[in-house]
């Protein structure tokens, strides 16, 4: 059940091993690494902005992603439109995130430390996964690639499935959108200010608690979008969320929690590292991210970009 690994995120890695030493093969693998990296960046960005403002590390993030995957599957199944599916996943996880913040996390601020908040989100993760299993069943769903994504694009050196090119483009657009939102809008300014000094923003008469809700919703929606994007690549099955959450933790530890830049660099790096290791020594593909994390911790305990030690 848990055997599907991150490298099988990109089926084709093992099969194509028999025709090595070709430029097109390796460049296609580089692109596979980019796809995985994009997904990891999206997941870790959600984790990181939630952590930045609320100081919570959200263990339910992976299962929020799972909800996104399944909701998009259902919408696509019903309407036949892939983009409606992505939209459905975004809306559903946005609402889910805001609800969670309003109903549960709200009551932990100031009362409990990060330790219990983490456990609370662990409970939420179980509840979400249980509910997904309750609604959609324990066996996975076959997630077909949208019709337009089946064709291959000629990228000069190699041809590559259009859908995966779309994932990379969509991921880039989303990351840019989040960046612009945080840096160019008033709400983004408030969020950044709140990340630096919550009390001060509160004292300036801004409703920080509403800010919390919005940020939790956005973080959850990022996970939900990642879930919808990865659906056609991996399929939908109940442990998908957990499997992606743990490498995302590695990404935020390596990148430095709360660091936007760190998440992007570390996410792309680890995606590439995992796929490339898979090419040369597939047994180590899953382990390599953890080994990399251990090395980074030894050399730079605060992560590659983490100067601030906010959580301690």
């Amino acid at each position: 059940m848990l055997s599907s690994t991150l490298t099988s995120a990109l089926p084709g890695v093992v099969e194509t091993l028999s025709v090595p030493l070709q430029v097109d093969y390796y460049s296609a693998q580089l692109f596979n690494g980019l796809v995985l990296g994009m997904i990891l960046v999206l997941i870790s960005l959600g984790l990181t902005i939630i952590f930045g403002l609320l100081g919570i590390i959200n263990f339910a993030h992976g299962d929020t992603l799972l909800v996104g995957t399944y909701v998009s599957w259902t919408v696509i199944d019903a309407t036949g439109s892939y983009f409606l599916g992505v939209g459905g996943a975004i809306v559903a996880t946005l609402v889910l995130g805001m609800l969670l913040e309003r109903t549960l996390l709200r009551y932990t601020y100031g009362r409990y430390g990060a330790l219990l908040q983490l456990l609370l989100t662990f409970g939420v993760a179980e509840l979400l996964r249980g509910s997904v299993i309750f609604v959609w069943g324990r066996t996975g769903k076959n997630f077909s690639t949208p019709a337009w994504g089946d064709s291959a694009v000629d990228l000069v050196l190699f041809s590559y499935p259009l859908y995966r090119v779309f994932v990379v483009v969509a991921g880039t657009v989303l990351i840019a959108a989040v960046y612009l939102f945080l840096n160019r809008t008033d709400l983004g300014l408030l969020i950044r200010a709140g990340t630096q000094d919550r009390e001060m923003v509160d004292m300036l008469g801004i409703d920080v608690s509403r800010l919390y809700m919005v940020v939790f919703g956005i973080g959850a929606a990022l996970a939900g979008t990642a879930g919808a994007l990865i659906g056609p690549v991996r399929g939908a099955f109940p442990t998908l969320g957990i499997e992606l959450l743990i490498p995302a933790f590695v990404v935020v530890v390596v990148g430095g929690l709360g660091s936007f830049r760190g998440s992007i660099v570390a996410g792309l790096l680890i995606g590439q590292l995992q796929v490339m290791t898979g090419v040369f020594y597939s047994e180590a593909a899953q382990a390599i991210a953890f080994v990399f994390m251990a090395v980074v911790l030894l050399v730079r305990p605060d992560g590659l970009f983490g100067a601030e030690v906010a959580a301690e």
């Binding site: 990060a114 933790f249 590695v250 530890v253 929690l257 080994v291 994390m293 251990a294 911790l297 301690e312």
Partner: peptide, 17 residues
């Protein structure tokens, strides 16, 4: 090397390794 939330995540990642 780290405490708190980071400690939790690192122990988790090492265990997954």
């Amino acid at each position: 090397r780290r405490r708190g939330i980071y400690f939790a995540m690192i122990t988790l990642a090492l265990a997954q390794l």
